Simulated scan of single mutants.
Amino acid sequence: MSRSGYTLPVFACASAVAALHWLRHSQPLEVVSVDLIEPAQIVEIPIEQVAGLSKNSALAITRSDPGDNLDLTKNTPIWALVEWRKEPGEAVIIQGGEGIGKQLNAEGKAAIYAYAQRLLKENLCLMLAAGEKITVTIILPEGRSLAVRTSNSAFGVVEGLSLLGTTGISQPLSTPDQLDAFRSELQHKASRFESLVFCIGENGLDLARKLGINSEQLVKTANWLGPMLVEADALDVKEILLFGYHGKLLKLAGGIFHTHHHLADGRREILAAHCALVNLNSADIQAVFHSATAEAALTYLRSLDAKTGSNWVNQVYNAIAQAIDTRSQEYIQSHNTRGTAATICGSILFDRDRKIIVKSKTACILIEKLC
């Protein structure tokens, strides 16, 4: 059985709680209790170090423990600097320091998202008296160097890591145990809804909610799209909307139904093949093929459209979306032994700025039902 750990926001919160405790009592804590909120659970987080920097500020350090998840943040230090504040405003202000990423599409705003903000504020506000105010600065000393090994830049986050997620529990996303957990969630939701939305990761879940899709119809799949599609069909789910970042989801257009890059990639080959199918010229196909990332290939096609007044992005990505739908239907049908109509699939692909690139024809129908 794989061991679950906790997400980065939990350790950031624990550090902040320990630092605030020092400011109030001038005493270090070895362990702090954090209310995860999601799920409704109190957990104990060990504190590595606490130091008072002045009568108005203190710093505390924890270390990330994501359990058995293959997470590059494992054992990385998370600092929280807490300072008393007299200026008007919220009781708790959260800001990003060194190693916390900046959002390019939000004028450099710190990449500290809704769950992390809520987790910190709710736990810290319980420790404040009426009228007291603090500023909390989260620091990841290794964040900038670790970020170059992630896909953060593909989602417009630079210079560090994100405090992202919707839960405090960190689950191993590529183990059979995690697939069992995803299937269990799918079984529960399939008993309530005939139409569901599959999201590979947190970015898809977050964007789908913002579009007005009922969160109860969202199912996280991580990289297990193939098994999850087959399971949905077996559970008699009528319709699945595949909603994801184009650099992941386009793999399905090439028949790759486990999308972890350690198992299979093929993104540039799939992109280049669809460029050829819509008759893009050879030099431009070569440029797409040799792009460092799927996002870079999309940027190249967009610049080509801007220069020439062409429509290559729409042509290429419409072809890819249709291929995703077709290959998904074929994949499901190949595993359907009941002789019944297979689950219908549609697809929506978005870019690093969480802007939708394309909706397949089927997705356009499904999204009308879901929103």
Rank of each mutant, 00 (worst) to 15 (best):
T166G: 13
I169N: 11
I169T: 08
Q171T: 10
Q171D: 09
Q171W: 14
P172Y: 05
P172R: 09
S174K: 13
S174G: 11
P176I: 01
P176L: 07
D177M: 02
D177K: 05
D177R: 04
Q178H: 13
A181E: 13
F182Y: 09
F182C: 01
E185V: 02
H188D: 13
R192Y: 08
F193Y: 15
S195C: 06
S195T: 14
V197L: 03
C199H: 10
I200Q: 11
G201W: 09
G201F: 08
E202N: 15
E202G: 04
N203A: 15
N203T: 12
G204D: 05
L205Q: 14
L205W: 06
A208F: 01
A208L: 04
R209C: 07
G212C: 07
G212P: 12
S215V: 06
S215H: 11
E216C: 07
Q217T: 11
L218Y: 06
L218G: 08
T221S: 10
A222M: 00
N223T: 04
W224Y: 14
P227G: 11
M228D: 05
V230T: 14
V230C: 04
V230K: 13
E231F: 06
D233I: 05
D233W: 02
D233L: 01
D236T: 12
V237I: 09
E239M: 00
L241C: 04
L241S: 04
L241W: 08
G244M: 11
G244W: 02
H246C: 07
L252F: 09
G255H: 05
G255P: 08
I256S: 07
I256D: 06
I256W: 11
H258Q: 13
H260I: 05
H261V: 10
L263K: 14
D265Q: 15
G266N: 11
R267F: 15
E269M: 12
E269I: 13
E269N: 14
A272F: 07
A273N: 06
C275V: 01
C275H: 03
V278M: 00
N279S: 12
S282P: 03
D284V: 02
D284P: 03
I285H: 06
I285C: 07
Q286D: 13
V288A: 12
V288R: 10
H290W: 09
A292D: 03
T293N: 00
A294T: 12
A294N: 01
A294G: 02
E295T: 11
E295H: 01
L298K: 02
T299H: 12
L301Q: 08
D305W: 07
D305N: 14
